[in-house]
Amino acid sequence: MNDKTLDCSDLDNYMGKPMQPARMKEPLHNNDFRRWAQGMHYPNLLHYDTEFAAESRFGRLVAPQSFPVATDDGHGAAPACVGAIPDSHLIFGGDEWWFYGPRIFHGDSLINERVPTGYSVKDTKFAGPTCFQWGDNNYYNQDGDYIAKQRSTAIRYRADLAREMGSTDSEEEPQWSDEDIAKLEDEKLDYIKTLHALGHDKRYWDDVNVGDELPKRVFGPHSIASFTTEWRAYLFTIWGGTHRRTDLDLEALGFDPNMAGHENDGVMERINPELTDGAYFGPSRGHLFPRWARYIGMPRAYGYGASMGAWIIDYLAGWAGEWGMVVHSNCSYRGPSLSGDVTYQSAKVIDKFVDEDGRHLIQVDSKMFNQNGTTMATAKAEIELPKKSD
């Protein structure tokens, strides 16, 4: 393409029409929860330590609240990526989550019912004409219990324009001394100690005040190894683990030919599964290979948008403890986690109230940023906490 337009005319054919649902092939296992907690850098004993979990209110291991996205076959992107946009690529732009109460345990089976909902085209400094596309993911368990809704935002753009507009600047990774790493490890441990300190106790709504700040969380430096660990925590990346879609054709979606490939292709999975799991070929390889990251407009290897949404939910859920629950989180992604960078999270209580359903809620503003103070994501969320008996 020689012009600087983005043809989104095909998208109207798909809005509001349900897609094929996402389904795993076997019931979930405790090790799926452990792998997810490990991949998301979330050392909460409730999700991986059998003895600790047995003494909890659940009496057993329970999945992190962020886990539903791990049971999708495309980390929530599918309903936000329908219709052809020629010579395009996709990155995540944000997630809004609603949680309805039921938790996920060993033996459960989840299904994700998906509906594309809308789109808007705007001009951006990143890639010129850019399509922001939305879709809903509705997660249910085998009993029909409504677990969560994820409203995803995908950003679809032309990679050639992103390269032309200089998005690949800052290709060099920052260097961390042994002293720097030691300090980071101390900061990580300080955060982990706050999880241990709460233990199985309740964090009461009564004891939280507007203006309170949550403990700062840190993880990194990110690397291709850590991004690979993240990717492998998504269950759809396991060969044969998902009922693959029959309505997915990345070339038909208009993906850049060098990035389309056979990701999630059930036919190719039986022939050569390495072409289908997203790590080596196809649109996801930009995360793990610096050459392909630069090709689609990123300066170097980078993390996954759906992981950033999980980091936010985990951070808030860990603070709430096992008796609390994140009921809503609206996350906007401003920039990726790049290899060599460190991610920090902070949050501040901005309101506390009782809603029309009688729930005692804490509202927080949360921020994710790197070692330079560059904002990576922002979120506003509501967290339900127990009320002391009168």
Score class of each variant (00 low, 15 high):
Ala260Pro: 11
Phe255Asn: 03
Thr194Val: 07
Tyr280Glu: 14
Leu184Ala: 03
Ala225Lys: 11
Ser284Asp: 12
Asp207Ala: 01
His196Lys: 15
Glu172Trp: 00
Phe227Gly: 01
Ser223Met: 04
Leu235His: 04
Gly282Ser: 06
Pro273Trp: 12
Ala233Phe: 09
Glu179Ser: 13
His262Asp: 13
Asp180Met: 04
Arg203Thr: 07
Asp180Lys: 03
Trp176Thr: 05
Trp205Glu: 00
Asp180Val: 04
Ile181Asn: 03
Pro221Met: 03
Val210Leu: 00
Asp186Arg: 04
Asp277Pro: 08
Glu230Val: 10
Gly254Tyr: 07
Gly282Lys: 05
Ala279Cys: 11
Val267Lys: 14
Arg232Lys: 15
Ser223Leu: 03
Ala252Asn: 05
Gly211Met: 05
Glu251Met: 12
Glu263Gln: 15
Val208Phe: 05
Glu274Trp: 07
Gly254Pro: 09
Gly278Ile: 02
Thr228His: 09
Trp231Asn: 06
Trp205Cys: 03
Asp212Pro: 01
Thr242Gly: 14
Phe236Val: 09
Asp206Ile: 00
Pro174Gly: 00
Ser284Ile: 04
Asp277Lys: 08
Ala279Tyr: 09
Lys183Ile: 09
Trp231Lys: 03
Arg232Asp: 13
His222Cys: 14
Arg245Asn: 06
Met268Ala: 11
Met268Phe: 07
Met268Leu: 11
Gly266Glu: 08
Thr194Asp: 12
Glu173Tyr: 05
Leu198Ile: 01
Glu269Trp: 04
Glu171Cys: 02
His262Leu: 08
Gly240Met: 10
Pro174Lys: 00
Ile238Thr: 08
Asp212Gly: 04
Ser223Glu: 06
Leu275Asn: 11
Thr229Val: 11
Pro257Tyr: 11
Leu250Met: 12
Glu269His: 09
Asp256Ile: 15
Arg217Pro: 15
Asp212Tyr: 01
Gly261Trp: 06
Lys183Leu: 14
Leu250Lys: 00
Ile192Leu: 06
Asp206His: 01
Leu184Trp: 03
Gly199Ile: 00
Pro283Tyr: 12
Pro174Thr: 02
Glu179Met: 10
Gln175Gly: 03
Thr242Ser: 15
Ala279Met: 12
Glu213His: 10
Trp176Gly: 08
Glu230Gln: 08
Tyr280Met: 13
Asp178Glu: 07
Lys188Glu: 13
Phe255Tyr: 06
Asp178Asn: 04
Trp205Asn: 03
Ser226His: 09
Leu214Phe: 15
Asp186Met: 06
Tyr204Pro: 00
Thr242Trp: 10
Gly266His: 08
Gly211Gln: 02
Asp265Thr: 12
Glu187Asn: 07
Ala260Gly: 07
Met259Asp: 10
Asp265Gln: 13
Lys188Asn: 12
Arg203Lys: 09
Val218Gly: 15
Asp247Asn: 06
Leu198Ser: 02
Tyr191Gln: 00
Ser226Trp: 08
